[in-house]
Amino acid sequence: MTPWSLIPHLLTSGITIGAIYALVALGFVTIYRASQIINFAQGEFVMLGGIITFFFLRGGGIPYPLAALLAVILVIIIGLLLQVLVVYPLRKASVLIPLMATLGASIFLSNTSGLIFGTLPKVLPPFSGERPLEIGGIPIAPQSLWVLGATFLLLITLYILSHRMLLGKAMEASSTDPLGAELVGISRNLMVLVAFGVSAGVGALAGIFITPIFYTSYNSGTLLGLKGFVAAVLGGWGKNGGAVLGGFTLGIVESMSVAFIPSGYKDAVAFVILLLILYIRPKGILGSPFIDSRRW
């Protein structure tokens, strides 16, 4: 088998994992836009979504959809608690301190998950069978289509939330001009809380959709979170469109790399991309409203 014959398979798996990176990146962006905080516990939401669903399904014998729903609700509550217990008390500290705190929360969440649910990797059953569909001669796992469909729906939902609903506009107002927002009665703390809830929910859903494809263990959130962060920077830090573009680009490039370099180096690809983008174009593909290009 030559490397080239692998390309179609690698492309489909790249798109699938790219969708997950995109969702994680969107979680980063949502929280950053509301609060200027980089939440490094973002990947843990994904891990918890998958693992808690597994726990309800296997341990509790709860039907799959209900188990997934309960897991999403539980992870949203964890996200809200993260804001209330960790981020809110540090609201007057400089930005680096809440960032460190979320990193700490990330370690806490993954180790707690390991203690409660065990350290063995978990895998969920696919939503609709395992038999691959043939599309244009390429076998595609039905779960990949679920991932893409769910990502698409979530993107539309987030778009409507942030551009069509007053709540989303209030979040934007609160991040662009906190004083102006407070003076018309938009509480910044409430907006940050909503952002944590939304990000946690999106992360949990990503975890539920991806766990039937990739094993999820208590410590897989860290790497997923970091890659989602790379994706958000790659696409253009702070932009929803950038997060999506960056996610898919990273997923595809990373997956394709396996055809040409040993697969053990796959995870390093993301970080090489991060280094390159920071050297060459720190504002990302689409440009970033938060990074002043004149400084570089």
């Binding site: 007053l166 209030a170 934007e172 107002a173 662009t176 102006g180």
Partner: peptide, 17 residues
């Protein structure tokens, strides 16, 4: 301290938030 990225109407609607 208006919200520069939002439309004039959205600024007013947020006043009635």
């Amino acid at each position: 301290h208006i919200f520069p990225t939002l439309s004039v109407l959205d600024n007013l609607l947020l006043g009635g938030y």
